[in-house]
Design a protein around this nucleic acid. Structure first.
Lengths: 212, 212
DNA sequence: TAGTGGTCTAGACCACCCG
DNA sequence: GGGTGGTCTAGACCACTAG
């Protein structure tokens, strides 16, 4: 790649500005930089199918794996929070939740089963109008007027329950990846929870780690 | 937290220097920053047991989960590379590998089974002198004189083979997390491979994602 | 309105790699 | 030795939040 000075000249900005951009690319592993040598694009990382760092969009993840994505909303209902849910969402036990179950398909084949819950009190629109085919971030932004700032995910291997296995058209004896996510706002308020079952035989999940 | 200007004054550096440090903390989710407001430590992320972003040290991961770590080297031998291994390591099929199997325990209980292979040609010392209780990065640095710059990990749920299950003292019917890692140098040369079986019932793996 | 973080500039010096 | 990225400075202006 061109040097920092060349890029700065080409785009008419200072070298410091170029550096902040390149630093972000380097942190994601997309470029490799060597002092005294130069900057190189990291083809190996670019070819990685799906980067765990940004799995906020399952449809996009399915597409990156080379399939055509589709979404089916299995259910959307209001119910009371369990004790675990009320603790994780910092709401009162038994408070009302919007609970949503969705199935993501790759070329028609089910690959991700996604359960999500949101405190009902967050919603500014009738829940009939909530469009379950959108990304979690977009739902929260448009229907709750909150922005998701960060998420913490627990990664597990699990023997799926009968219902989950049958929705994913897999035998209950085959293990599945389970990603349990909690979404938070910039103010550190819990906004939503997710339990996502992945068919890791079809979808490839990659994690890129960078040192230095 | 103190403002950027205060920190700059306190440490006698420029505000730009303070900002590069804070930017790194924010990228890891350890602090939250709001324009016009201030900088806050993110206790939720700090409390997360083990950050997937830096699982280069299993002993440290076990410690963060609240256990006392120990390592047992199960085997260390030289053998020929399989076809998959030679492709992943960009070496000739059948080339010699150092193959190592290690078991990490938490409070004496086995929790991680780690298989690693390295091209034998990388080593600058007799393999008898390779200390299997060290971290992969330290082994590569001291015995191969290479630095690991980045790694790409595939995440799977798997039904463990008999041998793996028995080493981890688990039933073969219980699923395990499998992390398949490839390590690369700054020059994008493959340095090592890893297949790590995790007892995710005992160890908690967290992934922090940050937006904005 | 005062103070915060976000963005940017135009320099400087250093460590490092390569021919 | 000449060019690279790594680090740093001392400013400037802006967008935003809060009281």
């Amino acid at each position: 790649m061109p040097s920092e000075s060349e890029l700065a000249a080409e785009f008419g900005v200072s070298r410091a500005t170029v550096r902040t951009v390149l630093a972000k690319l380097a942190a994601q592993g997309l470029i490799l930089r060597r002092q005294g040598d130069g900057t190189y694009v990291n083809e190996r990382v670019q070819q990685a199918k799906a980067h765990l760092q940004n799995i906020w969009d399952f449809a996009c993840l399915i597409e990156n794996n080379g399939y055509s994505p589709s979404i089916r909303v299995i259910s959307k209902e209001v119910r009371e929070a369990t004790e675990d849910e009320s603790r994780a969402l910092a709401i009162e036990p038994g408070a009302a939740l919007l609970s949503m179950t969705r199935l993501f398909c790759a070329d028609g084949k089910p690959v991700i089963l996604a359960h999500n819950v949101f405190p009902l009190s967050l919603f500014r629109v009738p829940i009939e109008e909530v469009d379950g085919t959108r990304r979690i971030r977009d739902i929260v932004r448009h229907d709750c007027q909150h922005d998701i700032a960060f998420a913490i995910t627990e990664i597990h291997a699990t023997q799926p329950a009968e219902e989950a296995a049958s929705l994913l058209e897999r035998s209950a004896s085959e293990p599945l990846l389970l990603l349990k996510v909690a979404f938070y706002s910039r103010e550190n308020i819990p906004l939503a929870l997710g339990e996502n079952y992945f068919d890791d035989a079809t979808l490839r999940l990659n994690l890129v780690q960078v040192w230095g």
